[in-house]
Design a protein around this nucleic acid. Sequence first.
DNA 1: GGTCCAACATACCAACTGGTATGTAATACG
DNA 2: CGTATTACATACCAGTTGGTATGTTGGACC
Lengths: 223, 223
Amino acid sequence: MAKRSPSRRRRQPDVTRERLLQAGFKEIYRRGFQGASLEAILDQAGVTKGALYHHFPDKAALGYAVVDEVIRDLLLQRWLGVLQAEAGDPVTALQGMLKQRLAQLQPHEVELGCPLNNLGQEMSPLDERFRRRVAATFETWTEGFAQVLRHGQTEGSVRKDLDSRKLATFLVAAIEGSFGLAKSAQSPAILHSNLEVLGTLLECLHPSDRMRKKTRRRSRRNP
Amino acid sequence: MAKRSPSRRRRQPDVTRERLLQAGFKEIYRRGFQGASLEAILDQAGVTKGALYHHFPDKAALGYAVVDEVIRDLLLQRWLGVLQAEAGDPVTALQGMLKQRLAQLQPHEVELGCPLNNLGQEMSPLDERFRRRVAATFETWTEGFAQVLRHGQTEGSVRKDLDSRKLATFLVAAIEGSFGLAKSAQSPAILHSNLEVLGTLLECLHPSDRMRKKTRRRSRRNP
DNA sequence: GGTCCAACATACCAACTGGTATGTAATACG
DNA sequence: CGTATTACATACCAGTTGGTATGTTGGACC
């Protein structure tokens, strides 16, 4: 047990590690992994090089941890979290997710894009272990979408002649591409437009009009 | 006038410049702009630092030229060239483009992704002049698609209630996202699957089979 | 054929880079 | 309490980076 209250302890390894992760994330998010300066990370974290190399064997290990812990959590809360909260048919749920994502969009998301995609594009050809972690995170994302789609297929609200995995993969790709284009153009409008188009396209997942019952629900609901 | 035949001349500034551009492109394509080593570029080009700094004021200028000349040409020939060659309605033309792109796909395109997107993701937040050039190239791409779509709309083979610009932008985003995902996963299968899905989705651009007059699409926004 | 400039080549450098070796204080533990 | 170990801090280093200063030569032009 700690003798002092935790807030007064002068050594809190887990807090230090977390500070390093957050500072590392910020720096890597902005400059890329190769461009990220360790000294800038240490500055931001308010610790010295000794602390960093105590918690991580090298720069790459810090990057790996940023993917596995920081970025992964971000993905879960930003995309999959709100998705599971939505009830009803998958199309509505996915549309709601896109809508909410747009509503809660932070400025730096347009300026800096998707941190996961950034790292994947930069490091995939250069570091296989980096690539594996990024790919695994994308896989989590895709599988999250695929589950929702499959559920909709068993439920009857999604056409059964479509491959849920392929669809989910395409959705992730379309989202990432939209963020990427918006980033290069520095244009929130492009992101909005693209995600709206994607949302509209989702309607095609419903069984065709003729076979569908008259439960034509527009996503008219307001939050 | 040259006294010798051009192939025997020992000084061909335009050739040297082109060698630098090509070597620069390769290195930047693989390692990113920040990660690209000038010495590696010089090695590949078979010239020395003096030559490089004679033709370009600094590293950034070489990168700019790579975007404006090498990558732009690649875009025109790989995407817009085959598109204009295709006749008939836009949907068929775009599908043909995707198909041909998949058929002529080179292995490193999956490994390294799209060079334009790579640079955009890496450099947009770091160098405004880089970003502008990348954005301008994306704009050329988008506008190429948009023209084809507009042509189809006047011709009647594409629904007129859709915004051709927004659609074109989405197409580019979906393509880029597909390359990006395939790169992180190192999976040609993902690229194939995604571009196939995209090709299928293009069918939705045709006027509805039943020619329903209910233009209840909500893609009408007024920016 | 002499002159001048473009077109390079060579050598060198200051600034950072990630990484390490060593020192030291806090804290868990017996 | 004593002690071992964790959790850092400081100082330093070798390698690499983009960039430059200077030297040299091919070739167009007069």
